[in-house]
Measured scan of single mutants.
Amino acid sequence: NLYFQGLKYMVPGARVTRGLDWKWRDQDGSPQGEGTVTGELHNGWIDVTWDAGGSNSYRMGAEGKFDLKLAP
């Protein structure tokens, strides 16, 4: 699974964008943008601060869902 392989790169400072299971509307800005991981992966959740200004926790394994992917 590509998403599980990418988890080791989901570290503080990593750049991310919305992924396969995104369901959080425009939390990442409008139009959709990139963000920066600000915390360690914990119980399948990870913290992100978006360039647009907001921050929140997103699923990276929790509930079998992956809200994020590494930015290109």
Rank of each mutant, 00 (worst) to 15 (best):
G64W: 08
A71W: 07
G53M: 02
G54T: 10
D67H: 02
D21Q: 04
W22Q: 04
Y58N: 01
W50S: 00
V48D: 00
Q27L: 05
G64P: 00
V11L: 09
Y9N: 09
N56F: 13
S30D: 14
W22P: 03
K69E: 12
K8V: 11
G13D: 02
Y9Q: 10
S55R: 13
D21N: 08
F4L: 12
L7I: 12
T38P: 00
G61H: 04
P12W: 08
H42M: 11
H42V: 13
K65G: 05
D28M: 04
R15S: 02
G54H: 11
D26I: 05
H42K: 12
W45Q: 01
D67A: 02
D51V: 03
L20S: 12
D51M: 03
A52L: 08
T36C: 09
M10L: 13
K8P: 10
V11I: 12
L70T: 05
G39S: 14
D26M: 07
L7Y: 08
G54L: 10
D28V: 04
W24Q: 04
L2Q: 15
K23Q: 12
Q32V: 08
F4V: 11
G35K: 00
V48H: 00
T17F: 06
R25F: 15
G44S: 01
G53K: 02
W22V: 04
H42Y: 12
G54I: 13
S57I: 10
P12I: 14
A52G: 09
P12Q: 09
V37W: 00
T49N: 09
F66H: 05
G29A: 05
A62G: 06
Y3S: 13
G44F: 04
G53T: 02
L68H: 01
K23M: 11
T17V: 15
W45H: 03
D47P: 13
K8A: 12
L70Q: 07
G35H: 01
A14Y: 04
V16N: 00
M60K: 01
P12M: 13
H42F: 11
G13M: 06
G13T: 03
E63T: 05
R59T: 01
E34V: 14
T38G: 06
F66Q: 04
T17C: 15
Y3T: 12
P72F: 13
L68D: 01
Y3I: 13
A71L: 12
R59F: 02
R15L: 02
G61I: 02
S30N: 14
I46E: 00
S55T: 14
P12E: 11
W24L: 05
L68I: 10
N1T: 13
I46A: 03
W24C: 07
P72N: 15
F4R: 09
S57T: 12
L2W: 10
N43Q: 11
A14R: 07
S57A: 12
W45N: 00
D51F: 05
R15F: 04
M10Q: 04
E63D: 11
T49R: 11
D26G: 06
R15Y: 01
G6R: 09
V48W: 01
I46Y: 02
L68P: 02
N56I: 04
F66R: 03
G64A: 07
S55C: 14
D28C: 06
G61E: 02
G39V: 04
W50L: 02
W50D: 00
E34G: 11
R15G: 01
Q27N: 06
D21R: 05
A14K: 08
D28H: 04
R59C: 01
